[in-house]
Design a protein around this nucleic acid. Structure first.
Lengths: 356, 356
DNA sequence: CTGTTAGCGCTTTCAG
DNA sequence: CTGAAAGCGCTAACAG
């Protein structure tokens, strides 16, 4: 019926509807019912080749875009996976997102990223958004325990990445922070350093706790006592980070610095640079997490490199696995970081001048 | 009715429903109709204080999360704004996203970011996702003209950022590329350089075209002829970028390099570093776009800084404006970049040795 | 101030 | 292989 009119007058009847075309419009245009159109365009269910072809053509002609809300409402779940990271401006998180996206895309899921600025309120708001969207799952670098609780209460799969903050068992992808930090600090101690400053984020995160632990373990193994005054906890984006690092340098006279994340390493580097210190002659520096600038500066920074993109991929894989088998036991994957020795570490300065 | 049962048995009846709570569940729990519940929880329409309180409590108790799909389906639009950028791993785009997010949040919109890897197919897929979600609008750093066409055909507001690729008038936020590049190259020419290499992305983007134009304009103004062999177009993520830059150095012997984006600047820097060249004694370097590493290296890089975050904010503001008045004429905002002279630029090496 | 009613666009039985 | 019918969860008239 409508099909005939459509065909004869096609050329002039390409009036773009004021509202987006619906499946019913497409069906009418092709002379079928909406159900058939649904089957043809979504690809599941029997449709005769002829009908399918006409429907596809009609959809094309009307610039039909399926309404995701209607579909999600009906199916009660969507093919969207939510990702919440702390700071998209930090390449660590950007790398994670890249890895996640890669694996998700292969499985025909859509990733949606939100950045929460390490703020619990924003984090929870993000989770609620994903809950509201009926996401198939959520991958998160958590700042508190609530996300996992909230999500699992609603039956939505969660994977924690980089740190574990859930208060119940939960899939997670971690890096061996203790070993990474241990390697880094062990390297410094082996070079003869005895006063190694630790710059660490002031959080209750397992990542930072692990790095602190590694710092202590390395000291214990080397038989060196830890001077607690060398440990400086600094909040993210703290405006006084650099002055505090400078003060630590003055007051505690470390011969080496271990910066437990890339942001702190950047602060440390700026302080050292401003003082005109020459590395590693005057001071050694090691960073946890390798980001591009660290190999751009001179000397290049010795780092503990994390397999960031791989972490993202694994997290996505864990999530997909759980989507298939919701009740399998929680799995925690722990990847190994790698110490990459570059130019910023060397033997400590001899103390001859001072002891004279 | 149900209200009584609910109240008496509350303590033991906190059985989490197998399916997420719906508005109807909340209404039943509070002894009202769904409409009243809707009014109370969404905050629009008259509701008696008592009913409101009971509803809010009930919603809390049932851990009610509104179903975004149902709402969007009903209202035929969502409070989501889609953002498509070329590469979230590049701090330029991350900064843009941060600015957009900021302004959108204030207006109580939700930002959703997608990265398209400068790939047209991925870009279009992203647009379709946003179309399917009935986004309130889309902000994009376009790689082709299709997105704007597709979106405006569906009546969805679009804002292009960083470059204009739409084939019809469209809101946009740009930076004055020609002036920025002109300032940079003018600075080099004023220092006495006569062979300035240009590393530029191999695209048909207005951003790169503008920077190339600025390069030419500066030469013209200084009365210096452009040697076309000094212009090297390089695709994004080209694996042979560094060898090609190295070859340019050998064959054309420029005394300065102008890298038209941060990625190319990084490649150039690595090449110079590997050769042990000392800046600015042996060669000068200027970059378009200021990212953190550029002030971390020694000497710090002279740059044309873009107001990245502000660009994001403006883009979001333009989008919101258009949401209010869909038919106002397209507006294009052009922000001014700033030349920041640092240590990587100086007078060209004297050619005495060579001429001897 | 509140409830009834209708329907957003899609998918999914279930008959034919 | 196809269509009719029902309903996902929510909101917007419109009566009361």
């Amino acid at each position: 019926m409508g099909g005939v009119a459509g065909r004869t007058a096609r050329a002039i009847e390409v009036k773009p509807l004021p509202r987006p075309a619906t499946l019913a419009d497409v069906a009418r245009e092709a002379g079928t019912s909406a159900s058939t159109a649904s089957r043809a365009l979504s690809g599941r269910g029997y449709v005769s080749p002829g009908a399918r072809a006409r429907l596809i053509a009609a959809a094309e002609r009307l610039a039909y875009v399926p309404n995701a809300s209607a579909r999600t409402l009906k199916q009660r779940t969507s093919r969207v996976v939510g990702v919440v990271v702390s700071d998209l401006g930090n390449l660590f998180y950007a790398g994670l997102a890249a890895g996640i996206e890669q694996t998700l895309r292969e499985a025909r899921y859509q990733m949606i990223v939100l950045s929460d600025n390490s703020d619990t309120a924003q984090e929870i708001a993000g989770i609620r958004t994903f809950l509201a969207m009926r996401s198939a799952g959520v991958i998160i670098t958590p700042v508190g325990p609530e996300p996992a609780r909230l999500l699992s209460r609603h039956g939505v799969p969660v994977v924690e990445v980089d740190r574990q903050l859930a208060d119940a068992p939960c899939d997670a992808v971690l890096v061996d922070n203790e070993r990474g930090a241990g390697d880094a600090v062990g390297h410094l101690l082996a070079l003869g350093h005895r006063r190694v400053a630790l710059l660490v984020a002031e959080t209750n995160w397992t990542s930072d706790a692990g790095r602190l632990l590694g710092y202590r373990t390395a000291h214990a193994e080397a038989g060196v006592a830890v001077d607690e005054r060398l440990i400086l906890p600094i909040r993210f984006h703290a405006p006084d980070a650099e002055p505090r690092i400078a003060r630590l340098l003055d007051e505690e006279e470390p011969t080496a610095i271990f910066a437990a994340n890339n942001e702190l390493a950047e602060h440390a580097w700026r302080v050292l640079q401003r003082r005109g210190l020459e590395l590693p002659r005057d001071l050694s520096l090691v960073a946890f997490d390798d980001v591009p600038w660290m190999s751009l500066v001179d000397p290049a920074i010795t780092v503990v490199a994390q397999p960031v993109v791989e972490m993202g991929r694994r997290a996505a894989a864990l999530l997909l696995r759980r989507t298939d088998s919701p009740i399998s036991p929680p799995r925690v994957e722990c990847l190994q970081p790698t110490l990459v020795v570059r130019g910023s570490t060397g033997a400590p300065p001899s103390r001859t001048a001072e002891s004279a």
